[in-house]
Design a protein around this nucleic acid. Structure first.
Lengths: 153, 153
DNA sequence: CAAATAAAGTCTCATAACGCAACCAAATAC
DNA sequence: GTATTTGGTTGCGTTATGAGACTTTATTTG
């Protein structure tokens, strides 16, 4: 009996969670965004078990989120680098950070600032095409014919 | 031996994942954003095992993401409703949706549109205080004194 | 050059989490 | 008054996770 796969749910959120929805993957990705590239550095900074780290890195590579590149002279030193797909998870990581800071207080000794100006970044917000901030209640989930979905969907 | 807790990592992303970082929680929340409120409806729409759903709902209630309210005449019919904290995860859910749509193709038969105009919402982006879109490389992670963090941090 | 250390895994084993199905009790529907 | 719905709980087998020891090349140190 395997873990339930979400492929059949016809939902892109489920599909995303299939790739990065476990406890560790997003932390590995966040760490990669901090600049970490080597196996041991991931291990030391996250305190993750080596076998689990190994499994997560492989899976992220398989899914195209990380790339494993040889950097040793003779091919036994590797680096795990974010791909474009991996870098594009920046929004997700920032969304989680900001949510946690807002609701659990800032447990983080780290700040995220714009490189050129040194200023803190703006809070993320879902926006309409016109640029207005939108909450859950300001949007509608519609099917392919544009019909609103009912509550049990 | 319990699952590794992320509290000691001093990282708000880790802290967020502690609350909603398992396979199911964000799907439950997304479903709640669609309007689902009853135990059976979550069960039917997600296909989650009943004991797991039970555990997830309780944990989300404990963490203040959902609220359990009596709706029956005599108190055995319940609804699980998003709190403000839960609704604020909208950004995270949308970020995951959009990422998955961009990189895995749209596996979803569902669209997210602005309620008033019916138009599709804009792509999420991390922005500077001035409003420019920022990628991972345009930001710096700095410590509390403003010093940039090194790669292994 | 030899020995030591490091990098990147792999293996084993114990425990925790998950998935499935059956069971249960109260409230509602018929 | 019986059947069904709702919101669970219990048992059991399978899978995932965590800790730590072990392995294998490469590089560094003496």
């Amino acid at each position: 009996m395997t873990r339930k796969r979400f492929d059949d749910l016809n939902c892109s959120v489920a599909c995303a969670l299939n790739e990065v929805g476990d406890w560790w993957s997003l932390l590995v990705i966040k760490q990669a965004m901090l600049g970490t590239r080597r196996f041991v550095d991931f291990q030391n900074s996250l305190g993750i078990a080596r076998n689990i780290l190994c499994d997560r890195l492989s899976r992220l590579v398989d899914n195209g989120v990380l790339a494993r590149v040889d950097v040793g002279e003779h091919g036994t030193r590797y680096e795990y680098r974010l791909t474009d797909k991996g870098r594009d998870l920046f929004t997700v990581v920032v969304a989680l950070r900001q949510w946690s800071e807002r609701w659990n207080g800032n447990r983080d000794d780290m700040q995220l600032v714009e490189r050129s100006s040194g200023e803190a970044i703006a809070p993320l917000a879902v926006r309409s095409a016109a640029g207005e901030a939108l909450g859950v209640r300001d949007v509608l989930f519609v099917d392919e014919e544009g019909r609103p979905l009912e509550s049990t969907g």
